[in-house]
Design a protein around this nucleic acid. Structure first.
Ligand code: MN
Ligand code: MN
Ligand code: MN
Ligand code: MN
Lengths: 220, 220
DNA sequence: CTATTTTTTTAGTTTTGTCTAAAATTATTT
DNA sequence: AAATAATTTTAGACAAAACTAAAAAAATAG
């Protein structure tokens, strides 16, 4: 497998994540995700097309080819293994690991990553509950669902929070919700899509729809 | 402390190492070390001068400023900590670690490196016996000396080999010399600067000057 | 079905780091 | 000390990755 620049890798990974949700990815979407300008995206899409990582016809949006998906899974493997290493071995907290892994993921030495995987005991998920692809690029289907999608009276373990702003962290701290917290959904209100949840035997409390949309749990 | 590009860091580190030996470093020396062209070196020297990392007057060679030395020690700290991690935790052999550390050293997140240092138990030397600068950039003086500089009948522990070619490794393997081997110098010959050495109680054997110049030991 | 708005692409620059070829400077011989 | 050789710098070009402004295409509204 060839080697790609840091910039190319960041584009490839972003496309991979966006196409999970949207099928085909658009120029503006990707520019927004990578905090760059649409013109820069178009330039890179031409490059990735030449390298056969991308299906792209002008104005038609883009998807990764099979080869592109393989490359993306390699980057995600490196990212998540480093996240696990940082949290588990270096005792970083779960909200600090992403930024550092964003750089470490670009050191692409196969032996390094496979030995790291072994050293870590072949972990199945990263500190956010996302599955780690194996050495062949195989990845389990994520069991994470959004809090808004949970059935009533079922318990889920908080595994990740999509927004990483300090505002959401402040609110989560106030509500005593952290990664690992067990939440039970007791009621949902049609009017504003707010919900009441419980932690263990404590009294139920209310969560707004905006907050619930950003909380993901591993269910039963 | 500011952030520098991978390319800048590679130049800074190379100057640091060359000036240990030579006092002031020349354009050709550095070009040769970094496998680049003299014109590229001159360009970069101008940049590093503007950033006040370098004392440089055209045609006069260059030296790092105090600030430049500090930056270099930070890079060397990262490099050697990663080398230690690769050898000690991931079980890389001593001749494989350098190449990977050459990339990892450019991920410059202070917390990452200080936590890594702690995780590793604050090691004092890397797998080649070279001292690791502490978080403040303090570094012990290396006790490594060249095999050619050893006194007769003293024992030294092989700690590094400056050449890393497969040719030298083949020869070292044949002579049963590895990192950690205890060598005793028994005789030196003026004619070709070859020497006779012993490993433990085994019979003495001959080492050429070219080979001896590339072997470094920690003595008593 | 036009007209307007939004999205995307193109054209032309900029910055960083590299290179080759030529010019300038310094070092070494004779 | 002048000629020659070696080293270093400059000038000009190029590739990667970004940007701004303008043009082109697609989507949406009236
Ligand atoms: Mn990244
Ligand atoms: Mn993650
Ligand atoms: Mn390096
Ligand atoms: Mn080393």
């Amino acid at each position: 497998m060839l080697n790609y620049s840091t910039s190319e890798e960041n584009y490839i990974k972003a496309i991979f994540h966006l196409q999970r949700q949207d099928g085909t990815v658009t120029t503006n979407e990707l520019a927004n995700e990578l905090k760059t300008k649409p013109a820069s995206v178009t330039d890179m899409m031409k490059k990735l097309k030449v390298k056969k990582l991308l299906n792209y016809q002008p104005y038609q949006g883009f998807r990764l080819t099979n080869e592109g998906n393989k490359v993306a899974l390699g980057i995600i493997r490196r990212h998540r293994l480093w996240e696990y290493f940082l949290a588990e071995k270096l005792k970083f907290s779960w909200d600090e690991v992403h930024e550092v892994a964003e750089e470490l993921e670009h050191v692409s030495n196969k032996k390094l990553i496979d030995k790291l995987d072994e050293f870590l005991g072949f972990p199945r998920t990263d500190p956010h509950g996302d599955p780690i692809p194996d050495a062949n690029g195989k990845i389990e289907i994520s069991k994470k669902i959004c809090l808004t999608a949970m059935a009533l009276n079922t318990i889920g373990v908080v595994s990740s929070v999509s927004d990483q702003s300090s505002e959401i962290l402040e609110l989560l701290e106030h509500k005593k919700i952290a990664i690992g917290t067990k939440l039970e959904v007791k009621k949902k209100f049609e009017f504003d899509n707010s919900m009441e949840v419980k932690i263990g035997r404590q009294p139920a409390f209310t969560i707004s729809n905006q907050l619930a949309e950003n909380i993901f749990v591993l269910s039963n």
